[in-house]
């Protein structure tokens, strides 16, 4: 599904990613952990095509093609989804309108007809039920005045509607209380399937109690310094990041 080889990227001339290697197969859940400033968010932004990052080396192959050949919106239509750490407010733009525009952009790409309003509404209501979202959610403006928990649930709702192949979750647990975290995690777990892969970027292992990963990677100073299974996250929880950073240095 996704093959990252020796990926290097910089921001304003400063190298942040210094040679990342990662193989992700369909259906796998990979957690990327690491201290602040290790390059976790940069990795998810580079993969989703955000402006302002310069890829200086290496390659990323997505479903057999060069990911960097695609613009951000083309990646989204090809099934890459980024759940934001800080979802953005768009004043005056209706949540349902936004969601429908996104869904239909993807359908257009796939050569499918636009989803009509009834069909869309039925589908979105079903997904909202799953995430315990109130119906008025659809009629509010995109993320405007949403609580932290509502914003994150909105991200997962978008993910559920867009049915991506590759889901990048950037610090989805930040700013969530335990109840909201559970709801969000349930939403994510409901989307797990043999075809769909996840990259879960997180600082804390707490999220991984709910979204159980197949692999855990530790990112430090722009490189993956240690990889392991579920138990690595627990070890990190206990010992912190210091020992790994020392080992790597």
């Amino acid at each position: 599904m996704l093959s990252i080889k020796d990926l290097r990227a910089s921001v304003d001339g400063k190298e942040i990613l210094k040679g990342i290697n990662l193989e992700i197969k369909p259906g796998e859940v990979h957690a990327i952990m690491g201290p602040n400033g290790s390059g976790k968010s940069t990795l998810s932004h580079v993969l989703s095509g955000r402006d302002g990052y310069e890829v200086t080396g290496g390659s990323v192959t997505y479903n057999g093609g060069d990911l960097f050949e695609l613009e951000a919106h083309e990646r989204a239509r090809a099934g890459v989804f980024l759940a934001f750490q800080y979802p953005v407010e768009i004043p005056g733009v209706n949540n349902m309108y936004f969601l429908k525009a996104a869904v239909n952009a993807k359908r257009e790409q796939e050569g499918k007809p636009e989803m009509d309003s009834m069909e869309f509404l039925t589908l979105v209501r079903e997904k909202m039920g799953l995430l315990k979202m109130k119906p008025d959610f659809l009629h509010r403006n995109v993320n405007e005045g949403f609580s932290g928990g509502e914003k994150k649930r909105n991200e997962i709702l978008q993910m559920a509607m867009l049915e991506p192949n590759l889901c990048l979750l950037d610090e989805t647990d930040s700013g969530l209380d335990i109840d909201a975290l559970q709801i969000v995690a349930e939403g994510v777990n409901a989307l797990r399937s043999p075809e769909r892969s996840f990259v879960v970027v997180t600082h804390y292992q707490r999220l991984l109690d709910y979204i159980v990963p197949d692999f855990v990677h530790v990112l430090a100073h722009g490189r993956i310094v240690k990889s392991g299974g579920r138990e690595l996250a627990l070890e990190l929880e206990e010992k912190g990041y210091g020992w790994i950073e020392e080992q790597a240095a």
């Binding site: 989703s48 095509g49 955000r50 402006d51 613009e71 951000a72 919106h73 990646r75 989204a76 239509r77 989804f81 980024l82 934001f84 979802p87 953005v88 768009i90 004043p91 005056g92 733009v93 309108y97 936004f98 525009a101 996104a102 952009a105 993807k106 790409q109 403006n141 978008q158 867009l162």
Partner: peptide, 21 residues
């Protein structure tokens, strides 16, 4: 970026944001 990362083209995103405004 929020809009484009959802598959909405940049032109449509601008139009959407301005109309919201």
């Amino acid at each position: 970026f929020y809009c484009t990362s959802r598959g909405i083209s940049e032109e449509d995103a601008v139009s959407m944001i301005v109309n919201g405004f």
